[in-house]
């Protein structure tokens, strides 16, 4: 069974952060951006490299 966070998990996480930082109203205004960001994070998780691949930073 996959232990990777789901789209819903990731969206809830960043939405909760938005509410904590700026309140419910602002978080609601950001819905489209938050959904898009959650999709991006799911995308990245889907094709993760082997565990020995280090971050690139300065390529």
């Amino acid at each position: 069974m996959s232990t990777k966070p789901t789209y819903d998990d990731l969206l809830k996480d960043i939405t909760d952060r938005a509410k904590a930082l700026w309140g419910e109203g602002k978080a609601a205004e950001m819905t489209a951006a938050l959904e898009s960001t959650a999709r991006q994070m799911v995308d990245i998780d889907r094709v993760m490299p082997r565990v020995d691949v280090e971050p690139g930073f300065y390529q």
């Binding site: 990731l10 994070m41 094709v47 993760m48 082997r50 971050p55 390529q59």
Partner: peptide, 21 residues
């Protein structure tokens, strides 16, 4: 900027690992 402030640090590092691959 606002979206960037919300992205968890682990997700950022995973993105950088994926970029290297």
């Amino acid at each position: 900027i606002e979206v960037g402030m919300l992205i968890p640090s682990v997700r950022y590092v995973q993105a950088q690992r994926a970029r290297r691959q």
